[in-house]
Design a protein around this nucleic acid. Sequence first.
DNA 1: ATGAAAGCGCTAACAA
DNA 2: TTGTTAGCGCTTTCAT
Lengths: 344, 344
Amino acid sequence: MTRPRVTIVDVARHAGVSTTAVSKVVRNAPGTSAQMRSRVLAAVEHLGYRPSAAARALRGRTDTIGVVLPDLRNPFFADILDGVTEHLASSDHQLFMASSHDDEASEGRVTDALIDRSMDGVILVAPISSRRRLEHVAHTVPTVVVGRHGPAAGYDIVADDDFAGAGLVVAHLAELGHRRIAHIEHHETDPVRLAEMPNARRADGYRHAMRAHGLGADIDVVSTTYNRDGGYRGARRLLDRAERPTAIFAGADIVAMGVLDALTEAGLSVPGDISVAGYDNITFAAFAPVALTTVDQTGHRIGRTAARLLLERIADRSRPTSQVTFFPALVARRTTAPPSLSSR
Amino acid sequence: MTRPRVTIVDVARHAGVSTTAVSKVVRNAPGTSAQMRSRVLAAVEHLGYRPSAAARALRGRTDTIGVVLPDLRNPFFADILDGVTEHLASSDHQLFMASSHDDEASEGRVTDALIDRSMDGVILVAPISSRRRLEHVAHTVPTVVVGRHGPAAGYDIVADDDFAGAGLVVAHLAELGHRRIAHIEHHETDPVRLAEMPNARRADGYRHAMRAHGLGADIDVVSTTYNRDGGYRGARRLLDRAERPTAIFAGADIVAMGVLDALTEAGLSVPGDISVAGYDNITFAAFAPVALTTVDQTGHRIGRTAARLLLERIADRSRPTSQVTFFPALVARRTTAPPSLSSR
DNA sequence: ATGAAAGCGCTAACAA
DNA sequence: TTGTTAGCGCTTTCAT
């Protein structure tokens, strides 16, 4: 069924040279005559030889980098990956992805799996593991953490200023005349994650901005999860309030989707009855029938930067770590408008 | 910066046993006393030993399977992956994904990369490579092809009956009273792909069903691409028709998204002015403000089945190939309705 | 410029 | 039950 692998030995024999020679030619290493090159390449072609990455891995690099994503359904991660892929295209690294399914234990397993398979480097997107664990990973393999803040210890960080981004949304809604602006956040209790995770920073930014706009008394946060169902549940709870909010700021666009599910189901119009804003500016937010007001954190640029930092670290593992923060921008679309007179 | 790897030799020395013993214990292989087990496991724990997958790969299996996806933005693939992941959870295989970015050359590179890294098996989702190429891959590594039809040569196939699915949509629209039902397909010229790719089968099913319903004269196919932009461009062209269609059947839900973008932009209401149907039943189709009529091809079940077949083939590479086809179901939601009287 | 040989970490015969 | 040893395919000194 399956034919035996063509190895470097087969090529060497076929070309009548040493395996060393083949190795050099294949790797474009110096010290080969033009004549030898052509003979070896002919044999490679003839036999259909492909170097075994496994054998190479045993001697060092694998030319493979791994990305751990929390969730394949949130299109924001596709934006990040586009950026990573773009930057990696200039190198000869292969990119493999694995999902942690939003679960800490699974995230650990997947990261270990990547390390066991000797990835040259890993990019962890919005990881939820403990900082100690992240430091351990970074100690073992060049690591870049995306979308999580906090003191970098051994790894580079690329993130968006979530605190400021949340402020942009609140300012936008307050200017439109909203006072009862509610926020749906991803539930979080761990103290480190409360300081480092984007969801927590957005919630903090929301609270801070509400106070700054004199709306401290109207702060209203519902804790669910950063996915569509979390948005649905959060909105349901907000709709049950004695006094409904006039605007809902969902911590992520995917959460806003769930909010819109719930509002549609309840027969409410957006933004007529209630305004909705998200965060991430996933391509879905631009979907015309929705036209979601959101915050653009340029996932593409984040991904590119992460890939660049990772390659730099792979090239020089002792280079000092850096922390890049991008400032986000508000993208006002059609789900936000001044509150209706009756509800004001 | 990075500490040297803990190897099986370190563990053996620490536990005062042979490397063979460690290897056996770690793999739960037979032939180890309880006493030896505990000593070895203690050493493993103490030293934080993790077997090198690269070294294992050189001896055989890697416990890794690779999935090649055309595109990370089409949420239908996430449904398939959920199914794959679910089935794989019962085995100790790790799942890595790679994107081909809808490009044949890239698909080839990515598949080679997976083979080079000695994956135990690969799942190719809606691959566009030539059949010869697929046979080559299957000849090299256990392979399951998902979402592409055709004579199986060396690989298993799991797909949905796209021809029948398209018929369900046409029947639904015809029953509602539509006659001018247009179809947006993914442009295809390669003869083999015309016979095997889901997009081509759906287009064939559309034409066949139109004739079966006596609407042969109204057949109207626009060729673009299976992504959101393709849907947008296709709809624009249909709106420019002297006599507009009353219903648009997009070959995929993601295409329908683009159609809805265009219709919204043109100020047309759905289904008031025009009905829209998709295919795939991605979770987005259930998004309440849209409520897209579509065809459910149970990506989850397809993924589960693909994973099962792959594990079976890994266990026995000579077992005969099988071809599983699932029958799809229409999911009628709110984007389809009888045509308006004026346009009839 | 070219090649011989050691060895990366692990598993699988085979011996004891 | 336990250990010795020969590779898996490649890269890398080190000779030539």
